[in-house]
Design a protein around this nucleic acid. Structure first.
Length: 714
DNA sequence: AGCACGCCGACT
DNA sequence: GTCGGCGTGCTC
């Protein structure tokens, strides 16, 4: 047979596909197909790419064409729908297709060696359909991540025989039932915003809707593989063990695949293959799972849809939530975005009728009430060691009652900066426009933005004075102060520093659940997901900085964070105590409307106010943005490039702002600037970017640059 | 992005 | 005399 041409997408910043000849071996009749993976020579390397098309001829001069080395025929091709998803993301975020399609594949699929793949496939195919898959047998060990052996599981026969898919379902309240019915009854594309506070039973709605959709999708004459999959996205890896336990308990007969960056490569491959082969009915993962191959996808859940973690912040800067909605639209299936504090984007979509709101007004747990949120005016009640007397009193009361408390402070380390009292020296990082943070336990100063570390100076480096003092407080210092104040209390700190070791976060949360901790001090890590049954006090130490931030999204994030941390207060404990749990917020601005809305547990009031402000100021979600970033050794060079960029193309219906230094100008000796581009019309913005970016590449800038569509940190 | 080639400075 | 700095150029 005549050789054919493979058009292959490769993981390279070059904005095109690459053509290769495919030579047929003697007697070989099978044509390679789009969606298959090919091993090809590329420069002096051999790399794996995705075949996006098979053609008869190529525009590339024949002498430049090379032969493709191999095609992965062991695994089914990636679907047209998956390729289209990647193409959409590539177009929307203005990156080459290969940079979207390839890095999402497990590493073991991207190497030229196929030993790991062959091994994983053998395991997948020999898995006995009647064997007990990962979840049921492992439910008791749910705190551990599934192993390779567990992953490529098959469905148990009872699922195929039409047994009820909801073995342990608790009864739903009417609002939940209505939500489940709406989701499961949706025909075609149906975006839902599931709006309900912590404890209102959102998880139950996801799971029962999933159960109905999975059960319904079982064909009457069961084939080998069930044709339905549900994707559940959660914001953080930390939350997957808990979710896995929930899902396993509910669906002991279904197989589950996990997809997140914490998996070992072998696990990653096994779970990815289980999803790709349609063996996994439930796929549970973090944002990267939105790019998984899911040939039988029937429903997508995005839990805590407002969470900033859904936005990838390097490489391809995609929003997993937005791609989830696009994917649901493409496949004509329901997508459920759940939150107690929806993103203003999603809330606006509800207002405009694009999303359907499903509201859970009551807490589903019997007798549970919302925690009582109150403010402490720090001007009247001056704090010592960061704690006001009101908060200390509240802590004392919990200790006496044997209840747990949580102090929330979004700042790790001992103190954010040290300073010389006599000359005013402060601990600036030599490489970043940031302070070196005091980490007293390691006796080090550490920059949180580069890898820079140093000893704590005994004397001021400029004037020699010995009075070098920590300014402000982080979690370590709060922990130290508490230990002195309450010497017998069991105090535990949970932050990125205390949980650096693998598994230590789980262990720490376990200790709190086991009642081995009286006072928990933590950063936003403690705000997500975990409900502590015996926790009746939440203290928020220093939230005010976000109120006056340059970043117009700071208030939105703060509100979500405070609602979330308030929701940590136990659901059972308050019943036992006979009074609601308490949330105390230390603030210098007790009159601020954000706190007013928070005390009233009134997200809607808050959102209405924010949307009004955003509308008046012509900010998202009412306008659309893109950000051109540039970095160089010296800021002027970056700004010069940005300025030149802003001049090279005539434009209409677009606003190009002046180039400005980034809020944190220097990181690791690189200085960064940015150029904001806005439009009231998304198509106009995209059209501009499509015309503009090729021109930027043409001018061969001497600086490193990148474009971000729908930026969140401005 | 990799990965080469290439042309100038301080080391055995 | 070589090791190696990172400029610049290419990848079907």
């Amino acid at each position: 047979m005549e050789p054919c041409i493979l058009k292959v997408a490769l993981d390279t910043p070059l904005d095109s596909c690459f053509d290769y000849r495919w030579q047929f071996a003697d007697g070989e009749a099978c044509l390679p197909q789009a969606g298959q993976l090919a091993i090809v020579p590329f420069g002096r390397r051999e790399v794996v790419g995705v075949i996006v098309a098979v053609a008869g001829h190529s525009e590339v001069p024949p002498e430049k064409l090379k032969d493709a080395l191999a095609v992965h025929v062991q695994i089914p091709p990636l679907s047209r729908a998956w390729l289209d998803l990647c193409q959409f993301a590539a177009d929307y975020y203005h990156r080459p297709l290969g940079e979207v399609a390839v890095p999402g594949l497990p590493k073991n699929l991207r190497t030229t060696k196929t030993t790991a793949l062959d091994k994983a496939l053998k395991k997948l195919h020999k898995a006995d359909p009647a064997s007990v898959p990962l979840r049921a047998a492992r439910a008791s060990k749910a705190q551990t991540v599934a192993t390779v052996e567990d992953a490529p599981a098959t469905s148990a026969p009872n699922a195929l025989e039409g047994a009820p898919a909801v073995p342990l379902a608790p009864p739903l309240n009417p609002a939940q039932e209505q939500a489940v019915a709406a989701i499961a009854g949706a025909a075609g594309f149906a975006p839902f915003l599931l709006f309900g506070v912590t404890g209102s039973g959102k998880t139950e709605v996801y799971l029962q809707a999933a159960a109905r959709i999975l059960a319904r999708a079982q064909p009457p004459e069961p084939p080998e593989i069930p044709h339905a999959q549900v994707l559940i996205l959660v914001p953080e890896i930390n939350l997957t063990p808990q979710w896995l336990a929930n899902v396993q308990a509910r669906f002991p007969h279904l197989s589950i695949a996990l997809l997140h960056s914490g998996l070992a490569e072998g696990e990653r491959l096994a779970h990815w293959l289980a999803a790709h082969h349609g063996r996994a009915q439930i796929v549970l993962g973090t944002r990267l799972a939105i790019l998984a191959s899911l040939p039988h996808l029937k429903m997508i859940v995005v839990d805590e849809e407002h969470d900033p973690s859904y936005k990838q912040q390097e490489g391809l800067r995609y929003s997993a939530r937005d791609l989830a909605v696009w994917r649901a639209h493409q496949l004509a299936i329901p997508v459920v975005l759940g939150s107690a504090t929806p993103s203003l984007e999603s809330w606006q979509h509800v207002q405009s009728g694009r999303y359907q709101k499903l509201e859970l007004r009551e807490r589903a747990v019997p007798d549970a009430v919302l925690p009582r949120v109150r403010l402490i005016d720090m001007e009247r009640d001056k704090p010592t060691d960061g704690l006001t007397s009101t908060l200390v009193k509240a802590l004392k009361l919990r200790l006496e009652r044997g209840e747990q408390s949580l102090l929330f402070l979004n700042r790790r380390g001992y103190a954010p900066v040290i300073s010389c009292e006599s000359c005013g020296w402060v601990s600036n990082c030599p490489h970043c426009s940031a302070f070196m943070v005091l980490h007293k336990l390691d006796r080090r100063l550490r920059c949180h933005h580069c890898s820079c570390e140093m000893r704590i100076p005994r004397h001021c480096p400029t004037c020699g004075n010995v009075d070098v003092q920590p300014l402000g407080r982080g979690t370590q210092r709060v922990e130290e102060g508490l230990q002195q104040m309450f010497p017998t209390a069991r105090i535990l700190r949970i932050d990125a520093d205390s949980t650096r070791l693998k598994g230590s976060a789980q262990a720490a949360f376990g200790a709190v659940h086991q009642g081995e901790v009286d006072i928990l001090v933590g950063t936003q890590m403690v705000a997500k997901g975990h409900d502590f049954q015996n926790l009746t006090l939440v203290g928020v130490l220093n939230p005010d900085t976000a109120l006056f931030s340059q970043d117009y999204r700071a208030a939105e994030r703060l509100f979500a964070q405070l609602m979330q941390v308030a929701g940590r207060a136990g659901r059972q404990a308050q019943k036992a105590a006979g009074s609601p749990s308490e949330v105390w917020i230390q603030t210098r601005y007790p009159q601020h409307p954000l706190y007013g809305a928070l005390m009233a547990h009134d997200y809607e009031r808050f959102a209405l106010g924010q949307l009004e402000e955003r509308g008046q100021a012509a900010l998202p979600p009412f306008i659309y943005q893109a950000l051109l970033r540039a970095e160089a050794r010296e800021l002027p060079m970056a700004l010069e490039f940005l300025h030149a960029s802003s001049q090279i193309l005539e434009h209409q219906a677009i606003t190009i702002h002046d180039p400005i230094p980034m809020a944190m100008t220097r990181v690791a000796n690189v200085e960064r600037g940015q150029l904001l581009i806005e439009s009231g019309s998304r198509p106009a913005l995209q059209a501009f970017l499509n015309a503009w970016l090729p021109l930027l590449r043409e001018i061969k800038p001497r600086v490193k640059w990148s474009l971000e569509v729908d930026p969140v940190d401005i």
